[in-house]
Design a protein around this nucleic acid. Structure first.
Lengths: 275, 275
DNA sequence: ATGGAAATCGAACAGTGTGCGAGTGGATTT
DNA sequence: AAATCCACTCGCACACTGTTCGATTTCCAT
């Protein structure tokens, strides 16, 4: 029950839909694909709360418990629909696309996918993405970055950082968006109510209030898009620097070693013994 | 029920704990603080699934429904505990700290807070962070960045980008971490099982497999810390560039306008009419 | 046609968040 | 001292959840 949010106990170690073979699926009735498709329709139309096994069964014209023949538990279903979202972002051929274009396309594409299926956000922060579509995405990005000259350890860090930015950006953005959308208001009404709320919440922080006043006259969607682009540009600038370092090292014949540069502030997890 | 994951319908427009005055709290019995504290203990000890109103009431020695006098619904409780997590990260005085140190301290501190209370991740991607601690955090960061020379629109984008990176990074990291922790295995057993699973999931992507082989010999915590630092460094490099632009503009007396540079790939939300 | 496997289904269980109305206790007013 | 009021607690009930189990149906290979 809601276990996928933050798994309490996992049935088998590392059990995942992807590690187990699916049912033969030779029957004319239910199939895993149909179930996933129907689940996504419910999710997109009415959000996570609307997706119950009974409801899903009803939509498919069958009993709720019949689903459990094709799917072990609801978590698995969630893994499947999550990967389906990753499948929505399509990337160009990494062999003929610059790593920067690749990164931009991924960022915008993934953001669009998340915006189109907002219910996926809590899932991404909850269960590892091991589905074929997620794998394909990572693989293409790795190929593009490798072709550009990124060498092994930084290569993965670079891709991970990019994904982290998109995810971390889109989450709060969608939190706002859905809160607004579900308020039942629109236009100036909404604007006024929002300002009142934010103003009250930030009443002790004049600098924050100032920011909000700046935004009020602009279309929030446009502001968000510009801000997203700003962050992406920052990241690309940083990655360019790292790429240059990689190329220098490769040119000088120095092997890549993870730089021990985690200096300054450290969390409790930073100083584990190095092997 | 579970509505806070992706709010289906909100009772009042923009209702939030923070916009409403709390109860007088002059009673000797339950108080909002006690409830929040107890909730956090349960969450930290056993995760989100363990936190039910009945359970929480029992821990406080009172009936489950008594809680509803102090708290409107469970979502509100979640807002409260979420802000409590933000309160765990403490920042230095922005007037005497460089913006770069400030950014690093925030990044590592926030990551540590998330790692210490993993159940907060889905919340952050779900409801807007309007609590006093979140506000205080943003306010301090804005002050530090402003003092460094960031000017108005990029100022906010910079802070948002930093937060997005930390959140987006920590989410998947914790997904892995909890999956591992709950597998009930440890040491080599765990390592072997994980590799088997990942290998199977990535069986069609040799480049990904190659990465995992690289990591296997190292302490995953250390690798994660290094990778996090890598991403943070990238971001700071990018922000440094933006800061220089801000200073140039300020020196030339050019007013800040949001650059219309969201070029290239666009999502459906990018091209809303400009006001 | 028949045995067996594949698939479906209904009933039931333990659990969830929360609305409602009846109750409690202590302070304030008459 | 008695009555009133209000903050607060609580048990019951409702509709709903994911999932188990055993019985039942459906279908294919022999």
């Amino acid at each position: 029950m809601c276990e996928w949010i933050y798994a309490g106990t996992v049935k088998e170690p590392f059990s995942s839909v992807w590690t187990r073979e699916g049912r033969p699926a030779k029957s004319p009735g239910l199939s895993r694909d149909q179930i996933v498709r129907a689940a996504m329709e419910i999710l997109d139309a009415e959000g996570v709360d609307a997706l119950s096994m009974r409801r899903l069964g009803a939509k498919l014209g069958s009993g709720a418990t019949s689903l459990y023949w094709h799917i072990a538990h609801k978590d698995e279903l969630m893994e499947l629909v999550m990967d389906e979202v990753y499948g929505k972002v399509d990337l160009p051929d990494p062999e003929v696309t610059s790593w920067e274009d690749m990164a931009s396309i991924l960022a915008y594409g993934l953001r669009a996918a998340f915006v189109g299926h907002p219910w996926v956000i809590p899932l991404v922060g909850t269960m590892p993405s091991l589905g074929p579509n997620a794998m394909r995405m990572s693989s293409l990005m790795l190929r593009a970055f490798e072709r550009a000259g990124f060498t092994s350890p930084p290569l993965d860090y670079a891709v991970s950082t990019l994904l982290a930015f998109v995810l971390g950006w889109t989450g709060p953005e969608l939190a706002w968006r859905s809160t607004l959308a579900n308020s039942g208001m629109s236009g100036e009404e909404l604007d006024a109510a929002m300002m009142k709320t934010v103003r009250q919440a930030a009443r002790n922080h004049p600098d924050i209030l100032e920011r909000f006043d700046d935004y009020r006259v602009k279309d929030p969607d446009v502001v968000r898009a510009i801000a997203f682009d700003f962050g992406l540009t920052c990241l690309l600038d940083g990655l360019r620097v790292r790429l240059a370092e990689c190329r220098d090292r490769a040119g000088a014949g120095i092997p890549d070693t993870a730089s021990d540069a985690a200096s300054g502030v450290t969390s409790d997890t930073d100083r584990a013994p190095r092997t």
